[in-house]
Design a protein around this nucleic acid. Structure first.
Length: 418
DNA sequence: CCGAATTCG
């Protein structure tokens, strides 16, 4: 349980990814802060959006860290911060069981909210070498183009997502008229360095400010941490036992109307479908996420689940556009075997050009987190879209998708138009 | 959470 081989290089790359600085600039910035990533990031973002290069004055972060003494999250919050050097994932019991690990995890994650401003805390301590997995982002704009009915092409899966680079903006909240959406399997079942990874995840959110985030493999401690550090978002979870999905909705842009959880009757992995109804730009938007049954051996069950979710998309109100984004674990063949996607349902990756650059969302040759020796890749993470049916032309349409990758992790993004 | 090998009923 160590997480710091090659630290400086990793930190440099990571810092460059998160900040958009070039590698050399990132290295310099880190050196200036004695390779303390937390301080360097804090200092960088403190002055980003104007003069990220300027000073270092406020390098004294108001962050946090773990107290091994506290017992409850609440208490810890009151106590404030401490230090969190290195990757002291202290320990281990984190490994026992998910439930038992809560307390230790909470301790590890204690973070002090920055002063007042309603701004978002950018608290980070990304020292881990195993990062989260995939992320997808969708942007929805408004500009109706494209098909007006008639062209109901049935999309049969076939290709793959591609890798793309994150164009991290230094001005997180840029509003280009669309909305962005991320899908991210955070691999919460792997507890190694989870505290650090959790910080990284929240930092990524703080940096990119997506309007919607769909998570898979969330466990209680992460949910709690997430809720604490994403104050500007509604958090809806797909369960509360074991591991589950969750959806974050930026309050300033989306109204949360309702949500429901659709069980998959025969899942053996506690999987289900989370549906959230929202209003955005005065339009109805139905968001869904799921983590379909894993492994090749469970193809049948996975196909059943896929049919279930496609049916749910199909049955969504006509007035509502629908976006499903999740970890489907699908192989293309499994989709074609059930007849491909139904009428008017689109696979974002296909719709947006089946870019080979953004081909695989799960790739053992790019992401070595799991330590697999054999190389293989799949387009596990997918985004489906169905425009509102009672509007012509459609108001919401896909704009772009990208797959981000940093360190050994992958991040995926997509966009839409409206 | 792959692929290939291994274990077990």
């Amino acid at each position: 349980m160590e997480c710091q081989p090659n630290k400086e290089n990793e930190l440099g790359r990571l810092f460059a990814d998160v900040t958009s600085l070039s590698q050399p600039e990132a290295i310099k910035w880190l050196q200036k802060h004695s390779w303390n990533l937390q301080k360097a990031l804090d200092s960088y973002f403190e002055f980003a959006g104007g003069s990220a290069k300027a000073s270092k004055q406020k390098a004294d972060v108001d962050i946090v860290t773990e107290t091994s003494s506290s017992k409850h999250i609440e208490e810890m919050n009151q106590e404030g911060m401490q230090d969190n050097s290195g990757c002291g994932v202290e320990e281990t019991e984190i490994m026992i069981t998910i439930r038992q690990s809560d307390e230790e995890f909470a301790e590890d994650l204690t973070v002090q909210e920055p002063k007042s401003e309603g701004a978002t805390p950018i608290v980070i301590d990304l020292v881990s070498d195993d990062e989260p997995s995939e992320i997808e982002e969708i942007t929805i704009l408004d500009d109706a183009v494209e098909h007006d009915e008639g062209q109901l092409e049935v999309i049969t899966e076939n290709s793959h997502f591609g890798l793309a680079t994150v164009s991290a903006s230094n001005e997180p909240d840029v509003d280009d008229g669309g909305i962005t959406m991320l899908s991210w399997n955070i691999d919460g079942l792997d507890l190694e360095c989870l505290p650090q990874r959790s910080r990284a995840i929240c930092n990524t959110i703080a940096l990119h400010r997506p309007d919607v985030v769909c998570f898979q493999e969330v466990i209680d401690p992460f949910r709690d941490y997430l809720a604490k550090h994403t104050k500007g978002y509604h958090l809806v979870t797909g369960g509360d036992e074991g591991y589950y999905t969750a959806i974050l909705l930026k309050k300033s842009r989306l109204d949360l109307l309702s949500h429901e959880i659709i069980p998959y009757p025969t899942t053996r992995m506690m999987r289900n479908l989370l549906i959230v109804k929202t209003r955005v730009f005065g339009l109805d938007l139905c968001l869904m996420t799921s983590h379909l049954e894993s492994t090749r051996a469970c193809a049948k069950e996975r196909q059943k689940q896929l049919k279930c979710l496609l049916e749910k998309i199909h049955l969504a109100p006509q007035s509502s556009a629908v976006i499903f984004a999740g970890d489907t674990n699908l192989r293309d063949k499994e989709v074609s075997e059930i007849g491909g996607l139904p009428w008017r349902m689109r696979d974002m990756w296909v719709t947006l050009g089946s870019s080979s650059e953004t081909q695989y969302t799960w790739d053992t040759s790019v992401n070595d987190n799991l330590g697999f020796s054999t190389k293989s890749h799949f387009r596990f993470d997918r985004i489906y879209f169905r425009a509102a049916l009672d509007l012509s032309p459609p108001k919401l349409l896909p704009r772009s998708l990208r797959l981000m990758s940093f360190e050994s992790s992958l991040v995926l993004m997509v966009e839409s138009l409206l």
